[in-house]
Design a protein around this nucleic acid. Sequence first.
DNA 1: TTTTTAATTTATACTTAGTCTAAAACTAGT
DNA 2: ACTAGTTTTAGACTAAGTATAAATTAAAAA
Lengths: 128, 128
Amino acid sequence: MNKINLTTQRKAIFEIIQEAHDHPTAGDVIERLRLKGKQYAYGTVYNSLRYLTDSGLIRELKLGETASRYDARTEDHQHIVCTQCGRVDEVMAELPSDWLNQIAQDTGYTVHETQIVIEGVCKSCATP
Amino acid sequence: MNKINLTTQRKAIFEIIQEAHDHPTAGDVIERLRLKGKQYAYGTVYNSLRYLTDSGLIRELKLGETASRYDARTEDHQHIVCTQCGRVDEVMAELPSDWLNQIAQDTGYTVHETQIVIEGVCKSCATP
DNA sequence: TTTTTAATTTATACTTAGTCTAAAACTAGT
DNA sequence: ACTAGTTTTAGACTAAGTATAAATTAAAAA
Ligand SMILES: [Mn+2]
Ligand SMILES: [Mn+2]
Ligand SMILES: [Zn+2]
Ligand SMILES: [Zn+2]
């Protein structure tokens, strides 16, 4: 519960994530920083993303792709991925608590978090 | 829809997955093959795992860890991961179809598959 | 059975995403 | 200004997996 220290670099990276609406990867962040004329060391971007994640300012998403994505929406929500074009959309529908309860009961686990990735085909990919 | 060609190597790897109940990684498979006195080229294991996955004999699981895991249970089911010890258990509870329908409606996606990873603490990690 | 063709395995090089390290540059407290 | 702690930087390194090209093995043809 330490004070969050937002350095110039961390702030710039945080802003990129906040402005983005496509859940960018670390690579995307580096590219967008460069477009803004900012260029930080490779490792700094990764360190900052981890710092911001640990601080709870952003969320790291592991959607089964090669690279992690990052999300400034920290509210509880899930994601759906288009298998055709790769776009990622928000799933705001809250998951049924009785289903989660049943899982807890069946498995004996104390459920803490859910990372749900739904795969499908998005509207623009469905219509040719 | 071609005939499935199970070579010696592929069959041995398939058996490892079938015998396992812990959703082993490629690395685990290589290790268990060696314990059985079988040693195949690194790439062969990866190729075979992909072949078996594409053939539908096994499933590849991407649970947000560094390495993919493999599962001989191909029936539709989900997984729960213990954040303390890393063990992976089956979640057989079928997910509510009305929830999925709502997601399809909200997002405009045609839902094809769900890879649901639930994180929690397993029984043996909960009791000290 | 020999010859030809196709599929698979092997060894090794390469790629990608990310971490680690040690020195340099900042920052804050005295 | 001096010191200690923190952060950034450049570059080496790691882990998981893919790509390539030669060598083996299997299947098909003759
Ligand atoms: Mn999101
Ligand atoms: Mn399973
Ligand atoms: Zn699409
Ligand atoms: Zn556990």
